[in-house]
């Protein structure tokens, strides 16, 4: 019988989601568009596109 901690460790080791360090200095970018040209290009290319359904399979 695995303990809760062992289960969590197992889950953590299996996860493909990497561990990311939070850097509060990056919070200053919140609400800002760092790459406006890229966003404009994406908006232009996405115009009229039919997207896949977003609901769960």
């Amino acid at each position: 019988m695995k303990t809760e901690i062992e289960k969590k460790i197992e889950e953590f080791n299996k996860s493909k989601v990497p561990v990311v360090a939070i850097d509060p200095s990056l919070d200053k970018y919140q609400g800002k568009i760092l790459f406006p040209e890229k966003l404009a290009l994406a908006e232009k290319k996405l115009k009229g596109i039919k997207l896949p359904a977003t609901k769960k399979d």
């Binding site: 990497p18 990311v20 360090a21 939070i22 850097d23 509060p24 990056l26 919070d27 970018y29 919140q30 760092l34």
Partner: peptide, 16 residues
């Protein structure tokens, strides 16, 4: 191989 990622609190902005 990958670089170590850092993120803001909203996980929207990443730096490496």
């Amino acid at each position: 191989e990958k670089y170590h990622l850092k993120s803001d609190h909203t996980f929207t902005y990443f730096e490496f």
